[in-house]
């Protein structure tokens, strides 16, 4: 590892402490009469920041799974969606046309984590003993099917319209308008994202993380050393699933609604590409990668208005073509990403 990379990795701040402190402050801020009103033109950017923080939570789990333990989870959006819809269906008050049980939001939040984790256990048990790439098939398939079910089973999930009337706990603490809600949301989600980043980083820096990297390098040797490889893999898989489920619940509580459009395969693609750009296994690098790819998306969104003769549909397709090309180029020419370690990942660049 080069000097620059190692300094980048070992910047002397403990994210767990900072995250916790920030979270306490954020909650105090929420229940105080104070608020911050952002300038009007920044809403689009702030909305992307909210999404970035939620995707970052998914990504820290995914990076533990793939970057450290080598598990090819190609359906993080499945857990994100299951968490989101569990929370929405439990808490929605008489949604337009779907199941809405009207429980208070903490119930929905907790259930979202549990259901997403349960799905993780189910998928993990059935696939983690098989070849690496089988996990990719199953997770990708699950994500597609869950998305399909969400769109079509309209009596249960509200179909393509989704569910509305989901409680918005953060919006409920202020009357100062959408801008103030956005800022409060960013502060709370930022604190949570930082906290999860810190927890997962501690996990990967501890002896536990060393076992994960050993599994990635060679499962048989690790098993021979008396480590129960399957249990480690299952645990890591379920941790990631639970955090993604929580992120999904946060998203619907932020929006006050759940819809299939929030939970498409594009979430998986963005999170994965962010991880690969930044360098899988580099805890900070992956977040940098995510920031790069999401800035690209934000930038191209503004660009669409500037280019004549291209319909919106074509433009969306072209953007996905570019993202696909980017993925291919990274995989081929720089598999360790920008901040990753080629030796540790076992790739040649």
């Amino acid at each position: 590892m080069s000097d620059g990379a190692s300094r980048f990795e070992e910047f002397p701040v403990d994210a767990v402490h900072v995250g916790l402190t920030l979270f306490v402050l954020a909650v105090l801020f929420l229940y105080s009469p104070l608020f911050v009103q952002p300038p009007g033109g920044t809403f689009t950017v702030l909305e992307v920041v909210v999404l970035f923080l939620l995707y970052a939570m998914i990504l820290v789990g995914l990076n533990l799974q793939f970057g450290h333990a080598g598990l090819v989870n190609f359906g993080p959006v499945a857990f994100f969606a299951v968490g989101g819809y569990t929370a929405a269906m439990l808490t929605a008050n008489e949604p337009f046309r779907a199941v809405g049980l009207g429980y208070p939001w903490p119930v929905g939040l907790l259930a979202a984590i549990l259901v997403a984790a349960a799905l993780g256990v189910l998928l993990g048990i059935s696939t983690l003993r098989l070849r690496d790439d089988f996990l990719a098939i199953v997770t990708l398939a699950v994500a597609e099917i869950i998305h399909g079910l969400l769109e079509t089973q309209s009596d249960i999930t509200g179909g393509s319209l989704g569910l509305n009337n989901v409680p918005r706990p953060i919006a409920g603490t202020t009357t100062a308008g959408d801008g103030a809600v956005l800022v409060s949301t960013i502060i709370v989600f930022g604190a949570l994202a930082l906290l999860f980043y810190g927890v997962f980083r501690r996990l990967s820096a501890s002896p536990y993380g060393r076992v994960l990297r050993a599994i990635r390098a060679d499962e048989q040797v690790t098993e021979t050393l008396g480590k129960r490889v399957f249990r480690y893999k299952l645990a890591v898989f379920v941790y990631g699933a639970a955090v993604a489920g929580l992120a999904g619940a946060l998203l619907v509580f932020y929006n006050g609604a759940a819809a299939p459009g929030f939970f498409t395969i594009n979430v998986t693609v963005i999170v994965w590409i962010g991880m690969l750009i930044g360098g899988a296994g580099s805890d900070r690098g992956v977040l940098g990668g995510l920031a790069i790819i999401m800035s690209f998306q934000l930038f191209t969104r503004f660009l669409n208005d500037q280019i004549p003769f291209v319909t919106q549909d074509q433009f969306a397709s072209i953007r996905l073509v570019l993202i696909g090309l980017l993925l291919m180029v990274i995989v081929k020419y720089r598999p360790e990403g920008i901040w990753g370690d080629a030796d540790e990942l076992g790739v040649e660049s």
Partner: peptide
């Protein structure tokens, strides 16, 4: 390169 990079490549190719 191994199974996983090839798989990622195919996902990128599919998108393109």
């Amino acid at each position: 390169a191994g199974a996983v990079p090839l798989l990622l490549m195919s996902i990128g190719l599919g998108l393109v």
